[in-house]
Simulated scan of single mutants.
Amino acid sequence: MIPTSDQALANAARLLERAEIELTNLPLMSQYDDLARSWLTLASLLADRERV
């Protein structure tokens, strides 16, 4: 099932919250940030598709 743009944004927000917790573990923090960035990109693409 394809997520909605709101669901993708919620996933990104959760990942960014996890990244904030990992301030002392920079590699893990970076991975969370990269995953969140992917969800934000997907959210943008889905929002564009939902507008059509």
Rank of each mutant, 00 (worst) to 15 (best):
R14M: 09
L42F: 02
D48V: 14
S44H: 13
L26C: 00
D34I: 06
V52C: 06
T24W: 02
T41K: 13
W39S: 11
E17T: 14
L46A: 08
D33R: 14
L15H: 00
M29Q: 15
L45M: 14
P27I: 01
L42Q: 14
A43F: 06
A19G: 11
R49A: 15
E22M: 10
Q7F: 04
V52H: 12
L23K: 12
T4H: 07
Y32D: 14
L42Y: 09
R51D: 07
P3R: 06
L15D: 05
S38G: 13
L16S: 11
V52G: 14
A43M: 07
D33T: 15
I2G: 06
L35A: 07
A47P: 02
Q31I: 09
E17I: 06
A10L: 10
S30Y: 05
S5G: 08
L42W: 02
L46P: 10
L26I: 12
L9H: 10
P3Q: 06
D34H: 10
A36H: 05
R49G: 04
N11Y: 05
L46K: 07
A36S: 08
R51Y: 01
E50P: 03
W39N: 12
A13R: 12
N25P: 00
L23H: 13
R51N: 12
S5I: 00
L23P: 00
L9I: 04
S30P: 00
S5L: 01
N25A: 05
A8N: 06
S38Y: 02
L16N: 14
Q7K: 11
L28C: 00
R18K: 11
L45F: 13
A13C: 07
L46F: 03
A19H: 09
D34C: 07
W39I: 02
T41R: 11
Q31F: 00
A19M: 01
S30I: 03
R49Q: 15
A47Y: 09
V52Y: 05
L23Y: 12
S38K: 10
Y32H: 13
M29H: 08
Y32A: 05
L28M: 03
L16H: 08
R49I: 15
D48W: 05
A19F: 02
R51F: 03
A47H: 07
I2A: 11
M1S: 10
S44G: 15
T4P: 04
R51I: 06
Y32K: 08
E50R: 04
S30R: 10
A47N: 11
L16W: 08
